[in-house]
């Protein structure tokens, strides 16, 4: 019972890219050094020959997980609606992909599948009977900039998505209406990011023609909405070379969810993404770490108060903003995740 620690192997993407740690090495790190059992994967990163894994791969996976007595918590799946290129997938086709992913997840012993926050509720509902039949829960991600609760002022993100809590409400409604425990939510701690991480800001300062443009976004991001900010930026720094998504990330001045918002969705949570970017030592507390840009303490207190029983899986994402530099500057993912688990363990047991 209670909050358990796990790791999304997403955290070790760079070590996998450079062939320093394969999925077996990653799982062994979680077992040997983090002393815990929860494993989450990205289907298209870990599964060889996805979406048609061989029986040999599945057997190897299940055996290795058994050897170390690990728990397959959540498999993250996607919705690339342009797969067929000559048309945008309709909802029935999207549901077929989701059902295929659910069956792969079941064959690998996963308890949950995480679908994206952009997956329409109709697609989830079409796949729900399969989820129930094979006993794998579908959790819809609550990913930044999606809030948990309605906002006073409607907003669109840089990709043209409407930013609203509708996706959260629809999942709760589906669960309440069907009574099915096989649909729920996967909140990502990125919703508690209250400013861009220092690694993100530094990356853009290094890669744009004029770093002042980045400082301009940081200074005025809290004052203007995104469209207006982009207009001002284009005017003042023509050729700044940042796309809308980048400007959106850099302009962040408040978290898209309040820590308190998580309280009422706790019964709907299937698992949690412990997103983080950069763990630094807390001043005056040697050996204790924090991510200065993300609220962790209060959300974990609330999860405990509400009796959340499930996994927080570390999801380290700071590496991508340091890969424009030489090898000597690449961050150590293994060390970052160890620090994250120092923090998780301390906050859970507080």
């Amino acid at each position: 019972m209670g909050i358990k620690r796990g790791v999304s192997l997403y955290s070790y993407q760079q070590a996998q890219f450079f062939k320093q740690l394969d999925w077996k090495g990653q799982i062994k790190e979680v077992h040997d050094n983090l002393k815990t059992d929860g494993i989450e994967i990205i289907d298209e990163a870990t599964i060889h020959r996805y979406p048609f894994p061989t029986e040999e791969f599945i057997a190897d996976w299940n055996n290795y997980m058994a050897q170390y007595e690990m728990k397959a918590v959540t498999m993250d799946v996607y919705l690339d609606a342009l797969q067929f290129r000559d048309h945008v997938m309709n909802y029935h086709e999207a549901a077929e992909r989701l059902k295929r992913d659910l069956r792969i997840a079941a064959s690998m012993g996963f308890e949950n599948v995480r679908c994206l926050s952009g997956v329409p509720i109709q697609v989830i509902e079409l796949a729900l009977p399969t989820a129930e039949k094979i006993g794998v829960r579908i959790g819809k991600e609550i990913h930044a900039p999606m809030p948990i609760k309605p906002r006073s002022k409607p907003k669109k993100n840089a990709m043209g998505f409407e930013i609203s809590s509708k996706g959260v409400e629809e999942v709760m409604e589906l669960r309440d209406r069907t009574g099915s425990p096989f649909v729920g939510l996967v909140p990502d701690f990125g919703i508690f990011l209250h400013e861009p991480s220092d690694v993100t800001v530094d990356y853009f300062r290094r890669n744009v023609p004029n770093p002042d443009a980045v400082d301009f976004i940081r200074e005025f991001g809290g004052e203007y909405d995104l469209d207006e900010l982009i207009r001002l930026l284009n005017e003042k720094y023509p050729g700044h070379s940042m796309d809308g998504g980048s400007i959106e990330q850099l302009s962040l001045h408040e978290s898209c969810a309040d820590p308190e918002d998580i309280r009422e969705i706790v019964p709907y949570i299937v698992s949690i993404h412990g997103k983080f970017y950069h763990m630094t030592e807390i001043p005056g507390r040697p050996g204790e770490y924090e991510d200065k840009a993300i609220y962790y303490e209060r959300p974990i207190e609330i999860l405990k108060e509400e009796g959340f029983d499930g996994y927080i899986d570390s999801e380290y994402e700071g590496q991508r903003h340091q890969q424009d530099r030489g090898e000597e500057y690449l961050p150590d993912e293994v060390e970052e995740v160890r620090r994250h688990h120092e923090m998780l363990e301390r906050l859970i047991n507080k």
Partner: peptide
């Protein structure tokens, strides 16, 4: 790579 995290508004145009 035309990855799409769901139904992005520009997908019909990208077809």
């Amino acid at each position: 790579i035309l990855v799409a995290y769901g139904y992005l508004p520009m997908l019909p145009k990208w077809v």
